[in-house]
Design a protein around this nucleic acid. Sequence first.
RNA 1: GCGGCUAUAGUUUAAUGGUAAAACCUCUGCCUUCCAAGCAGGUGUCGUCGGUUCGAUUCCGACUAGCCGCUCCA
Length: 508
Amino acid sequence: MSSPAEPANLMEAIVSLAKRRGFIYPSSEIYGGLNGFFDYGPLGAELKKNIRDCWWNDMVRRRDDIVGLESSIIMHPKVWEASGHVAGFTDPLVDCKASKQRYRADQLFFAAVVVDGKTVGYVSALESENTAGELQTAAEALKRKKAIQGTLAAVAPRDMTEAKPEEIELIPSPATGEPGSLTAPRSFNMMFQTNVGAMTDASSVAYLRPETAQGMFVDFKNVTDTTRVKLPFGIAQIGKSFRNEITPRNFIFRSREFEQMEMEYFIHEDADWAKCHEEWIAWCENWLKSIGLPETHLSRYAHPKEKLAFYSKGTVDIMFKYPFGVQELWGIAARGNYDLNQHATASGKPQDLFDETSKKKFVPHVIEPAVGVDRILLAVLCAGYAVEDVTDEKGNTEQRTVLRFSPRIAPVKVAVLPLLKNKEPLTNRARALHAKLQRRYAVQYDDGGAIGKRYRRQDEAGTPWCVTIDFETIEKPGDTFTLRERDSMKQRRINEAELFALLEEQVY
RNA sequence: GCGGCUAUAGUUUAAUGGUAAAACCUCUGCCUUCCAAGCAGGUGUCGUCGGUUCGAUUCCGACUAGCCGCUCCA
């Protein structure tokens, strides 16, 4: 009965629905938009808040071993030096304007061709096992080509980050062999930079955080000194992070301002990290299922050992099948005690704990599940979106668009609908029920147009239930109303106590 | 950042070198006893800036944004 749209059009349909129904708008749209930034409209803001709340409740409030944290977005610049982000974010790149190739400046080597002490030209080569040899061969070829007499000096390879401005236009592109098409190395700075205080100089430079995780490491001692946590324990945080991505893509999947939900789970240095790692991967998978993501769309990707950062013991990504491909949703990394050690060294403040059994100090290791709220939100939009054929009693077939959100995260839990707008007893009862529900749940009151139209409108918003106040409600004993279920479109009669019991069970 | 394609109402799309049309959505009123009914009405600076032209939404350029491919994703 479900007719899945073509993947190519599916994303367009979802983007268009998200705009039309007030889930997601482009940022600053009246000024032409801003690449990589988005606004969440009324329904989107509710949906996002529900995802955050579910995570926070399950991760922090319903556990005894994890505490919450909200650290500042702008931190001391030394945090990012210690974490490796300042060194890591700068990847100088060189473009060849002729061939449109792009090279990392530290992997593109060149050398001056020196004959009898005089520079006669330049040669270049990409980094290889024998870069110097290739450059030497190229230099000899150049000398022959130019028919220059004399003694060729041994080449002195340098990479493009060391090229002087006047040399760059003389260095041939590896693609064309001709000089003049290479650009100077340009850095692609992934961290947003700002200045703290009125003075703008080198000493005032600060960064918007590119991840929330460092907050947990930097406040590690504060938390252990002020709360009664005992290993193993976790510190969790939800918050905005910022990365100046070169190419934001795929709607809200990769944006420049995004929201992370990260947790650092600290374990003893002798603990079985692999077992703990596996437990957290399973926990994350179960959590994703609990908010309605289908198991069929989830998979695991274990990063190959040779591609891991040197300090990492293992990273597994939980992948989600988006319309544009299988992409990383949730990364669960075993980071050893690299981060705490880095901060201990950089700050000079030990980050260790005391083991009462062995009477020794140690720096705990950490398992880090890190997920993006926006990526989850996009996943539930994609997984929940369906266009269905609906056949009525007369045999006419129509289509309805529905977002099958889990009741846990649905932006609107219940829509209260008087069957008719112009019958006051109906609207009075409906408004009373609406007001009562509103005290605990996100609900909507709608009396516009025909009842069927209102059902479809709620389908597009992903509202799991509609209750309709009809003539039976006000004329017959029992004060029951029609409960209409979104996915099955089935109806049954229910009273107020039963409705609240249903919500209590399904919305948690 | 590079290359290709694209930009008309909230959405999806027409037409046109002489200031634009349809459907859906949305809002107001009437009507309506359960799955997008009907009737009457409201809502538009053709992405931005410049050029060519008597006149540009239409042709040209730049910018901005989107899609695809590179590159990047620490």
